[in-house]
Each structure stands twice: as structure tokens, then as C-alpha cells.
Simulated scan of single mutants.
Amino acid sequence: MYNDSIRNLMLPALATLLLMLNESCNIMKQRPKDTFVLVHGGFHGAWCWDKLKPLMEKKGFRVITPDHTGQGKELYHYTDNIGALLEKQERPVMLLGHSSGGMVITELAKKYPGKIKGLIYLSAFLLPEGMSPPEIMRNDTVSLMSSSLITDESNGTISVDKKKAKQLFYADCEDAIAQWAIDRLSPEPVVPMGNKKPGQKNMVSPQPIPRFYIETLNDNALGISSQRHMQTLSSCDKIYTLSSGHSPFLSQPAKLATVLTEISDFINEK
């Protein structure tokens, strides 16, 4: 008799709990996947995401790859163009910057914090206010960047020596993939990436945005010591490690897609 009474009291509570769990599962199933905006680095273009993008889309994510190559690649032009894209998005996005693209997403976070769900630095410059890439890389004995660049003073451009590009950017890529990428590298104007738009003042994001760093252990462009130095200067919510060169979106796209999925899950579970 006593056990029957307890059971009768518990059954409605259990039914309610099961209903709540079912509704939670349905909400999780209905929640749309994140949108990723992938910002390429120097000398590259939207083409560099061609292997990663379909893998992310297969996982259900929406992926946007803005292109900004060649002349006019001053930092403020790039941020203005991507900022206009962010303003069109209905929901905050996951914003990833590769290499010098890290400087771009840092600036975007100051201007469009409400449009950004998370910042992801992929072997990228995560610079404290007032610091420049040369300062960060002063003691980088691994980077081949400075010895791999060619300056064309007559045209005011700088480009990557294509004989050195594989070792610099794609050392761990298959030869055919590396050559495909090398053929697409473009020159850039000799303009400091950190230059400010006339009259523009430094801004600080009014609200914290979750920040993540994906470090690349075998990087010949931005050495791991430089990457970790930046991590000590600017804290991140989580740090992920890939045993790759500077371009894991070409050498290890599936592993990179897995990391990006984990970051999305981490933010959405908070």
C-alpha cells in the first residue's frame, strides 16, 4: 500500500520530467547551426577555404567567405567591407581570422560586437592594443616570412616568392594542393595592414566576446613561439592545437572542421 502511494505520487512528476526533456531535445534539434564568416589572410583569397567550406556545410553550418585580394587591402577597407556583410546577418556569427586576418576580426569586434558570437584566431595575429606584428615576431627564429617576400618598388607591391611559398605556407600539404594554392597567391600593396582610416580612433569592444585560438605547431610563417606569446598577452576562452603548418584548411581540413564544430558546441552549451 505504502509503495503504491509513493509510485502514484512519482509517476506524474516523472511524466512531467520526461516531457520537459523531450521539449529540450526538440529545441536543440530545431536550433539553427551557427554561421561562420571566414576571413583569409595576406596574399590569399576566398579560394583558400574551398576544402574546408563544404565540410562545414555538410555538418549543417552556413559558411561565408568574403574575398578581398589585391589593391586596396588596407585594414580599414577590409573591416568596412566585412562589417557591411555582418550588418546584414540576422543572428550573430562565428568570426574566424587566419594569419593577418586576425587583425581584421579584432577590429570588427570593436565595431560590431552585437553581430559576433565568437572570435576564432587561426594561427593569427591576436595583438594587444598598440602592438604590431614585427614586435610580436621579434624573437621568432622559425618564421620564414621576411626571407620569402619580394618587394616591387616600381609598382608599390609586395608578393611571396613562389619558389619559397610551399615551405612558408604549405609545407605539410600534398604537392598538387600546394601548387594549386601557390598559383593563386596575389601581390598586395605596400601599405601597413594596421593603418587607420583618417579620423578613426581606437575603440574597445563594449562587451566581451568569447575568444578562441587555434595554434599550428609546425608553422613556418608564424612560429609557434609567436603564437603562444600572443596567447599570454591576450587571454582566450580555449586554445586548440593542430600539428600542421600555416594552412590547415588545405592540409587538414577535416581536423580543422572538427575543431570549429567543438568551438560552436562549447559556445552553445554555455
Rank of each mutant, 00 (worst) to 15 (best):
L9Q: 04
L11A: 01
T16S: 11
L21F: 15
N22C: 14
Q30F: 14
Q30N: 14
R31T: 15
P32E: 01
L38A: 01
L38F: 06
G41T: 01
W47C: 06
M56W: 01
R62C: 04
V63Q: 02
P66D: 00
G72V: 06
T79N: 02
E90C: 12
E90H: 15
P92K: 00
M94L: 11
K111H: 15
K117N: 07
I120K: 03
F125S: 00
M131V: 06
S132A: 10
S146G: 03
S146C: 04
D152L: 10
G156P: 02
G156V: 02
V160R: 01
K166P: 02
L168W: 07
Y170P: 08
D172F: 02
I177A: 06
A178D: 09
R184I: 04
S186R: 15
S186M: 11
E188F: 03
P189T: 01
K196G: 11
P198S: 00
Q200N: 09
Q200D: 13
P210G: 01
T216F: 01
N218F: 14
N220T: 02
R228P: 13
T232R: 08
Q252R: 15
A254S: 12
L256N: 08
T258N: 13
E262F: 12
D265L: 14
F266K: 05
E269R: 15
E269M: 15
